[in-house]
Write a protein that binds this DNA or RNA. Structure first.
Lengths: 102, 102
DNA sequence: TCAACAAATGAACATATGTACATATATTAG
DNA sequence: CTAATATATGTACATATGTTCATTTGTTGA
C-alpha cells in the first residue's frame, strides 16, 4: 500500500530540486526584488535604492536568483540590468499570493 | 520613477507573508510530506514509514505545515490523519515543478 | 488501573543562511 | 593613465532552521 504511494511520487531527487527552488522564493529580500522586477528592468543600484538595501546585499541575492535562473542580466556599460527570466516566476508568485489572500 | 514602481508593488508586509509561505515549501522534508499527501490521507507513522524519517521529525514538520494551513488533521483514536487543506497547495507545487522541468 | 501504542512537544546541537563591511573587478570619462 | 562609478565577491558573524533524543500527552484494550 505504501509501496503504491511511493511509486506514484516523483523521484526524491526531483523533490529536492523543487525544495531548492521554493527556498529561493522563501526569503523576503528576494521576493521583494522579484516583485520590483515585475514592474521594470532595473540596475542593481536601482533595486537597492528602491528597497532600501545595501548594494552588496542586493548583489548577493541577485546572484542566487541568477543561479536559479529566475532572473537574467543585460550588461550595458557599468550597469547590469536585471529582469525576470520567464513567466513561471510570476505564476508561482501569483499562486502563492492567492493562497495567502483566500 | 522609482516612486511609481514602489506604488505598484504590494505592501512590504504582504511580501513578507508571501516569503514565509514559500519558506514552508522550501524544505525537502516538507515537500516530500506534501507530495505523499497528494496520494492519500495518512497518519504520522505512515508518513515516517513511507519516507524513512523519524516520527518526531515528521511530527515537527507537520506542525509547521499545520500552522501555515497547508494541511489539516482528522483525529481518529490514537491516530492523526493528515491531508492537504486545499488545491492551492497542488497548484503551487505544480508551478514549481514545471519551472524545473522546462 | 495499567500497559501499549500514536502523536506531540521540549531542549540541545549542528548546520545553513542572510547581512554588513571591506575589497576587487570592470567600465567609462577626463 | 587615473579617478570615479557600478557591480561582484570574500569573509565574518549573528540568527534561523532542521534533526535527534528524551519525555509527555492522549487514547485504546486487557
Amino acid at each position: 500500500m505504501s509501496e503504491i504511494i511511493k511509486d506514484n511520487m516523483p523521484d526524491t531527487e526531483l523533490l529536492f530540486e523543487l525544495a531548492d527552488l521554493f527556498k529561493v522564493f522563501g526569503d523576503s529580500t528576494r521576493i521583494r526584488i522579484i516583485c520590483a522586477l515585475f514592474e521594470a528592468e532595473l540596475p542593481v543600484y536601482g533595486i537597492s535604492e528602491l528597497l532600501g538595501l545595501e548594494q552588496s546585499t542586493v548583489s548577493h541575492q541577485l546572484r542566487i536568483l541568477r543561479q536559479n535562473k529566475l532572473v537574467k542580466v543585460r550588461k550595458d556599460g557599468k550597469q547590469s540590468f536585471y529582469s525576470l527570466s520567464d513567466e513561471h516566476v510570476r505564476k508561482i508568485f501569483d499562486m502563492g499570493l492567492s493562497h495567502i489572500m483566500e
